[in-house]
Design a protein around this nucleic acid. Structure first.
Length: 308
RNA sequence: GCCGGGAUAGCUCAGGUAGUAGAGCGCGGCCCUGAAAAGGCCGGCGUCCCCAGUGCAAGUCUGGGUCCCGGCA
């Protein structure tokens, strides 16, 4: 059974293209996006509008309160079920989004290990604060030299994760990582990466940030920050940039500038992640390309690959 | 017009006592397995405004010029 994926950097135009594809292919869209999961994060996460999502069924959008944590494992489990269900209905699952880790978790799986342990994390971060990150890295060196080699001494987040896994399982993470199971072999995957010339992508980011401000980004962030907000949701691009402005640390213009810059950096990281994705076919589009025609082109590519 | 200050990497600027240049940011590349819109790593030969002079040697000293920014007229 086929699964079509459409990934790529933010602001490349994935959502619009996905809608055109879903319509022509009798598909349903599964969002592969760590922020669109949340209710109330609409403008900032670039969610499709209600009129858009009414026409085509969208999954994994608006399923969680912003106070709740989310992660790749949950995504994997939920997406798995939805893919199956869509196939049962005789439709085509269309996975769309920019969260590279989520896609990889689905394709190649995650190792069978424990989830996050808040208690251990807190403890290790306290230790890092006191003795520096190098101290934790040395600790890791002792219990799991292989992991220590692959994790940079400054990359505290991964060091802590490795230590936390060891504490709860007494097994080195480097061993656990060797056993993963994904869905790569279970379906025929067609993975497309949407991209544009860098300067055009950056122009689109610029315009998108401007339009977010016009549509009420500040009010949305204000609303979010008044409630309890999870660590996952707090990572939202725009959250800290806008909060700084609202708290009077800098001007609105500065906030805009920061958000634009950080979004560019994010897009760059996404590209570098997707370049490594196996069997991904890049679709390079330009400003003047019509999404419907691009959709046709992709469908032609699909037909091609199905027959060969 | 006069008096100060300045002209060095895309931008903002560092560069005692002269020995052919650096830092932040931007920008580019990369890493990534249960927080991923997060987190981490790497990358700088550039007419040092121009001309002349003194030095073995001049962003660095001397003289002249050009432009910019303040203040006073």
């Amino acid at each position: 059974m086929p699964v079509v994926c459409l990934v790529g950097p933010t602001a490349a135009g994935k959502s619009e293209l996905a809608l055109a594809l879903a319509k022509k292919l009798n598909g349903e869209i599964i969002s592969c996006d760590s922020m669109q999961i949340y209710r109330g994060i609409d403008i900032a996460s670039g969610k499709p509008t209600k009129t858009q999502s009414r026409r085509i069924k969208h999954h994994l959008i608006d399923i969680l309160k912003s106070s709740r944590e989310y992660n790749a494992a949950r995504f994997q489990a939920e997406a798995k079920k939805i893919i199956k269900k869509i196939h049962q209905q005789g439709k085509l699952p269309l996975l769309v989004g920019g969260t590279g880790l989520y896609l990889r978790a689905l394709l190649d799986g995650l190792f069978k290990g424990p989830g996050q342990s808040i208690a251990w994390r807190r403890k290790f971060y306290q230790q890092a604060q006191k003795h520096g990150p190098a101290y934790l890295h040395q600790k890791l060196q002792k219990i799991d030299p292989e992991a220590a080699r692959s994790i940079h001494p400054h990359d505290l987040r991964r060091i802590v994760r490795a230590l936390e896994v060891y504490q709860t399982t007494k097994q080195p993470i480097s061993e656990l990582r060797k056993k993963t199971e994904g869905l790569r072999a279970d379906y025929d995957w067609f993975i497309f990466g949407l991209n544009r010339p860098r300067h055009e992508l950056y122009q689109r980011i610029e315009r998108r940030v401007e339009s977010m401000f016009r549509r009420g980004l500040a009010a949305e962030i204000k609303r979010l920050s008044r409630q309890k907000i999870s660590q996952t949701a707090q990572a939202l691009l725009g959250y800290k940039e806008i909060s700084g402005w609202l708290n009077g640390e800098y001007s609105k213009e500065k906030a805009k500038e920061l958000l634009k810059r950080n979004t560019r950096h994010y897009a760059k990281r996404q590209l570098s992640w997707f370049r490594k994705e196996k069997d991904l076919e890049w679709i390079e589009i330009r400003e003047w390309d019509n999404p419907k025609l691009v959709a046709n082109k992709i469908i032609a590519l699909l037909a091609d690959q199905l027959t060969s």
